[in-house]
């Protein structure tokens, strides 16, 4: 019995060892050393702004897939893009500087409170009970996005979130965090922006908010470049087309908007609104 047990264990151990070592030779996967190098060059914030699951998957994709551009990392900016381009042999290109933007102006619209929320200070928690504001699409203002922001680029004031353009890397963390989908990534140079993200019908919007979008479609009709459309219940501006068209339309969409929520907000104009809010 002793001999057989020793033999069996020995044989089994040997068999397992042989199978595994042969398998490790046959099934070895070669890792491209450049992936590691690209990963080192990335900031490692794992913010997901590049559209991949994390820095590691972007690094792998940038090395293996020739169609993935080198400048997708918005957190790292042009420096990182240049490094990745060098490592992967791709053209760096120039990434359009983007910024996060809050599609809500509830303080101007005098949106009433539906109830006085006293729970855990978190938008996601408040959202479980339905939005505390009368509008179900407003910025709840409890700062989930601010806490999620990996770059400290947001602050709360007047019941709403504000973005510090200089710090914002447009990584998109706030976009995916906000339970009301208020945040949006837009080009810093965008000429016109919509300050409402309500999906409600016109009547329902005007009942709760003085400046909410009532989907009247005036802007859509007026735009000479046809770059405004109503998509999924929200007004959507194709900023690339809008910027390409240039200023010859003199922002007719903003002028015609009966609610005054299509606005010319460059980086400078955004600051002006903040000042106005602070004064109010």
């Amino acid at each position: 019995m002793i001999t057989s047990s020793i033999l069996v264990m020995f044989g089994l151990g040997l068999a397992c060892a042989v199978v595994l070592s042969v398998a490790s030779k046959l099934l070895a996967v070669e890792e491209d050393p450049r992936v590691e190098a690209v990963l080192d060059a990335l900031p490692g914030a794992n913010c997901g702004g590049c559209g991949f699951a994390g820095c590691e998957s972007y690094a792998a994709a940038a090395v293996r897939d020739p169609d993935v551009p080198a400048d997708r990392c918005c957190a790292g900016g042009p420096d990182v893009a240049a490094k990745i381009a060098e490592l992967t042999g791709k053209a760096a290109g120039s990434a359009e500087p983007m910024v996060a933007f809050r599609r809500c102006a509830k303080s101007e619209g005098n949106v009433a409170k539906r109830y006085d929320y006293q729970g855990v200070p978190s938008c996601a928690a408040a959202k479980l009970l339905g939005s505390p504001d009368a509008c179900s699409y407003s910025c709840i203002g409890l700062g989930d996005c601010m806490r999620a922001c990996p770059f400290d680029a947001m602050y709360m004031a007047h019941g709403m979130v504000h973005v510090i353009t200089e710090k914002c890397t447009a990584c998109g963390t706030c976009v995916s965090t906000c339970p009301n989908h208020v945040m949006q990534i837009v080009p810093q140079a965008a000429r016109v922006m919509v300050l409402c993200s309500s999906l409600d019908k016109g009547k329902a919007v005007s009942e709760v908010c003085e400046v909410g979008c009532i989907s009247c479609m005036k802007c859509v009709k007026e735009c000479p470049a046809k770059c405004i459309a109503l998509e999924g219940g929200k007004i959507h501006i194709d900023h690339t087309a809008c910027l390409a068209y240039g200023s010859s339309c003199q922002e007719v969409c903003a002028e015609k908007c009966p609610r005054g929520i299509l606005r010319c907000l460059g980086a400078a104009a955004a600051a002006r609104v903040q000042e106005a809010e602070a004064a109010a």
């Binding site: 199978v19 595994l20 398998a23 490790s24 046959l26 099934l27 070895a28 996967v29």
Partner: peptide
Amino acid sequence: QFVEMFLKKM
């Protein structure tokens, strides 16, 4: 261990 190697390759 084997399954891990197998999946990684195949």
